[in-house]
Simulated scan of single mutants.
Amino acid sequence: MLDAAAKRAEADRFLRRYAHDVRTDSGHPALRGCDEVDWSAIPGCPPEMPVLLHGLLDPAIAPEAARVLTNVLMDGIFRLGAAMPAVLPFVLRLAVADPRVPAVSCLVDIVVVTAGLSEPVDADNENAVRLRGCDSDHPERERCRAVFAEHAALLAGLPDELLTDADRASLRQAAGLGEPQGSR
């Protein structure tokens, strides 16, 4: 688990190494609006988040951008970071926008993990609460479910070859959708 200072240091290392290589003016439609988010107002989120997101488009640095992005977005193995709900729409759009996006498999992984970790925790399940915490302490779960619901139409565009049936079910549940027709 990376604390806020470690996340910041990792993002800073990425920026020192790659910021001059990243085109933040790419005009990629999936990233439209990412420069308008007040990233620095989100706890544990580097203000240069657009550089990380745009780095996902560059084949030479996409793997490192995806690794740093994942670390910034997670607060632990089973915990989503506060930035996840704000980043999720961009990650979803990138994952379905263009199969040539170099980090698409990493992006799909982020989407699937987020769907699973955004599921509500049963307050009566002591083990689940101990492992993942109470929902009231983790509003990012509900916010991520709202993002999945808002962008539910995009879920069908995720690459089939990168998803299992369990992944699809988790995504549908996170979006508040019922079972697909013919699944019973």
Score class of each variant (00 low, 15 high):
residue 148 F to D: 03
residue 161 E to G: 06
residue 21 D to A: 15
residue 60 A to V: 15
residue 71 N to G: 15
residue 112 V to D: 01
residue 42 I to H: 03
residue 19 A to K: 12
residue 177 L to W: 08
residue 63 P to H: 15
residue 124 D to P: 05
residue 138 H to L: 04
residue 83 A to V: 03
residue 70 T to Y: 15
residue 141 R to Q: 07
residue 135 D to T: 07
residue 184 R to I: 11
residue 8 R to G: 10
residue 24 T to E: 11
residue 59 P to L: 09
residue 13 R to G: 08
residue 153 A to I: 03
residue 150 E to P: 01
residue 125 N to Q: 10
residue 133 G to R: 04
residue 177 L to M: 13
residue 168 R to Y: 01
residue 55 G to M: 09
residue 37 V to W: 03
residue 151 H to P: 00
residue 158 L to H: 02
residue 32 R to P: 00
residue 130 R to C: 08
residue 88 L to F: 00
residue 26 S to G: 13
residue 91 V to K: 02
residue 33 G to K: 12
residue 44 G to P: 05
residue 24 T to G: 13
residue 28 H to W: 07
residue 12 D to W: 07
residue 115 A to R: 08
residue 125 N to D: 12
residue 166 A to T: 04
residue 122 D to S: 08
residue 61 I to Y: 13
residue 55 G to V: 05
residue 17 R to I: 14
residue 23 R to T: 12
residue 154 L to V: 02
residue 66 A to L: 14
residue 110 I to N: 02
residue 130 R to G: 12
residue 66 A to W: 11
residue 155 L to Y: 00
residue 121 V to W: 03
residue 177 L to H: 03
residue 32 R to L: 11
residue 174 A to F: 04
residue 70 T to A: 15
residue 47 P to N: 07
residue 79 R to A: 13
residue 172 R to M: 08
residue 106 C to D: 14
residue 181 Q to Y: 08
residue 114 T to P: 02
residue 22 V to A: 15
residue 61 I to E: 09
residue 39 W to C: 12
residue 27 G to W: 12
residue 88 L to S: 01
residue 159 P to K: 03
residue 56 L to C: 06
residue 64 E to D: 12
residue 117 L to W: 06
residue 58 D to C: 13
residue 3 D to E: 05
residue 173 Q to M: 07
residue 45 C to P: 07
residue 122 D to N: 15
residue 8 R to D: 11
residue 109 D to H: 05
residue 31 L to M: 13
residue 53 L to T: 13
residue 119 E to C: 02
residue 72 V to P: 02
residue 176 G to I: 14
residue 89 P to W: 03
residue 11 A to I: 05
residue 167 D to T: 00
residue 105 S to E: 05
residue 147 V to F: 01
residue 76 G to Y: 10
residue 59 P to V: 09
residue 98 D to M: 14
residue 38 D to W: 06
residue 41 A to N: 10
residue 69 L to E: 10
residue 62 A to G: 13
residue 144 C to Q: 01
residue 37 V to N: 05
residue 126 E to Q: 09
residue 149 A to S: 09
residue 151 H to G: 00
residue 167 D to M: 00
residue 129 V to W: 10
residue 69 L to R: 07
residue 23 R to N: 15
residue 63 P to R: 11
residue 38 D to V: 10
residue 165 D to G: 02
residue 68 V to M: 13
residue 10 E to S: 12
residue 81 G to V: 04
residue 143 R to L: 06
residue 29 P to T: 09
residue 160 D to K: 02
residue 17 R to N: 15
residue 57 L to D: 09
residue 49 M to R: 09
residue 158 L to Q: 06
residue 131 L to M: 10
residue 110 I to F: 03
residue 75 D to E: 11
residue 71 N to T: 10
residue 157 G to F: 04
residue 137 D to Y: 02
residue 140 E to K: 00
residue 172 R to C: 06
residue 117 L to Y: 05
residue 144 C to P: 03
residue 51 V to M: 07
residue 143 R to P: 01
residue 109 D to R: 11
residue 148 F to R: 02
